[in-house]
Design a protein around this nucleic acid. Sequence first.
DNA 1: ATATATGCAAAGCTTTTGCTGAAGA
DNA 2: TCTTCAGCAAAAGCTTTGCATATAT
Lengths: 150, 150
Amino acid sequence: MERTADFVNDRVETMIRRCREAGMNVTPQRIAIYRALVGSTEHPSPEMLFNSVSRTMPSLSLATIYKTLETLETIGLVREIPVTGDRKRFDAILEDHHHLICNVCGSVGDYHDESLDALPPRRRLGGFVPHAVSVNVFGVCVKCREAASH
Amino acid sequence: MERTADFVNDRVETMIRRCREAGMNVTPQRIAIYRALVGSTEHPSPEMLFNSVSRTMPSLSLATIYKTLETLETIGLVREIPVTGDRKRFDAILEDHHHLICNVCGSVGDYHDESLDALPPRRRLGGFVPHAVSVNVFGVCVKCREAASH
DNA sequence: ATATATGCAAAGCTTTTGCTGAAGA
DNA sequence: TCTTCAGCAAAAGCTTTGCATATAT
């Protein structure tokens, strides 16, 4: 939870509206999972979400996390992000932005750059029809750099 | 196998040299797996490599594919590429290039663009030290577009 | 009241690991 | 000859699925 309460509440309201429009039930689990995801900047895995949400909702099951993420993905509220490694990672921020991926610890941070947002090739690429562009910058994050210098 | 024989042979020679330099044995399995990977443009998963290489080397095991990919990755001959989905995908082409990812069938194609190669932020990004940049363009590939129009 | 979702447990897949025999240097 | 590797089978880990109960509308 690293974003402002106003931002998160705004997004949650939208999410509730979109669920109703899609004819889906609005359950406490769905709200809590979405709230945790939209409030986080670490692009959590299902397990990370489970650990954080189940603190306040101890009956929550990991299966519900998976089902909810898939459901929210189908109505365009959540997306899986491309990463290497063993766990899936998700994002609830769908606006153009890019990712800083740490080669040491695997953390995924956000990175905003309008010059990159502008670069999506809107033209066709040899028959491939582009919809969206995602830039991954690989390197070493602040924490790992500091840890290495000790 | 979609690249020229000369290109592939060249890379395989380099790979053999690098293995020796690293004090590793050069086995038929390692050569065959690397050859299949460097000769492919589809960024194969371990299973895809297994299917293609075991045609000519029936005794090959999937475990060897995994072990070999990891070994080759540690000496910088291979890398895992960031994708969504259930399977890992690998690339033996380490030079700057980017990926066209099909939202329909999950295929991963190459995409070369010098203007993108130039954009890696060489400066630090708020403490994050960038090493490499990878651009993923999501969209619909030629095959899926054609299939959809029938 | 009815349709939908949750939670549990089991199953399914991909990936990893341990060990023994085989092969490279 | 000595070290490293391949293959097998078993284990481990993440994700999905089926079903009964609980909940949203």
